[in-house]
């Protein structure tokens, strides 16, 4: 097809003219099959001197995130590689909207995105201290309930059912929820509610946030941001076999 340096493991083929017609079912199936071979990248191995190449990223995505006028820049180090790769693709394809990120990755190959995702996933700088827990007890309780147990009455699964009991994420595709400030978490949930952030179909996060009230978002964000760090901050090994929902971005292990 093209000269794009993307070997056989290339998860989501990118070629403008042959790009699959999203989001047809066939294309998503193809993408998921491609993801099975994650996270191997080009046979030549990772590019050298990635810390130099990644200055454009680390200038803002430092270990604690850096506030800039446009909004909070999240910590991305240590997040699962598959998750990071998917986000880079989403930014390139404008399924996630952020003018800076959309611009930076506009002309980037899948192969380079895979290398970038692996590089950030392998890094583990220290986390910042957690925030103070929410003052209002009702908010605290609601946050803990949603994260730990969900709300069966409203068909809301627990955050930890997918993001891991330690909330450190699950390899390869589910991000951790620790070490993120409250307004970033609230901002992302809000972005999903209004369609500014999307994931591969079926977009389970989009389904879940529809069932969250404004207060729920506030409670979850505040409670998550106040979690003390677990001893082990690495993402858990693999997705559970009994995930509560089917997510297009997450490869479901055969049970």
């Amino acid at each position: 097809m093209t000269g794009v340096p993307c070997g056989p493991p290339c998860p989501l083929p990118r070629s403008l003219t042959e790009r699959p017609a999203w989001p047809t079912t066939a294309a998503w199936i193809a993408a998921l099959i491609g993801l099975l071979s994650w996270p191997a990248i080009g046979a030549a191995g990772p590019p050298p001197e990635m810390d130099e190449r990644m200055r454009a990223c680390t200038a803002c995505h430092g270990s604690e995130g850096i506030r800039i006028d446009e909004g909070y820049v999240p910590r991305i180090e240590g997040k699962p590689a598959g998750y990071l790769f998917n986000q880079l693709v989403h930014f390139r394809e404008h399924r996630r909207t952020n003018a800076t990120m959309n611009h930076l990755v506009e002309w980037m190959s899948d192969d380079y995105m895979a290398a970038i995702a692996n590089w950030f996933a392998d890094r583990e700088p220290p986390y910042p201290d957690p925030a103070e827990p929410p003052r209002r007890e009702a908010l605290r309780e609601r946050g803990e309930q949603l994260v730990r147990a969900g709300d069966a009455d409203r068909d809301i699964p627990a955050c930890q059912a997918c993001h891991g009991e330690r909330l450190a994420g699950v390899r390869p595709d589910t991000p951790g929820l620790i070490g993120l400030p409250e307004h970033y978490i609230a901002g992302q949930l809000g972005a999903w509610q209004v369609g500014r952030r999307q994931a591969a179909e079926p977009d389970c996060m989009a389904t879940i946030v529809e069932r969250l009230s404004e207060r729920d978002v506030e409670a979850v964000a505040a409670w998550l941001a106040s979690r003390p760090l677990p001893d082990n901050t690495r993402p858990a090994a693999g997705p559970a076999t009994d995930l509560p929902m089917q997510c297009g971005s997450v490869e479901r292990p055969s049970s």
């Binding site: 190449r53 006028d69 446009e70």
Partner: peptide, 11 residues
């Protein structure tokens, strides 16, 4: 294949 990038100076 793996070009260096320039960070934006939005601030």
């Amino acid at each position: 294949p793996y070009p260096h990038g320039m960070p934006p100076f939005q601030e």
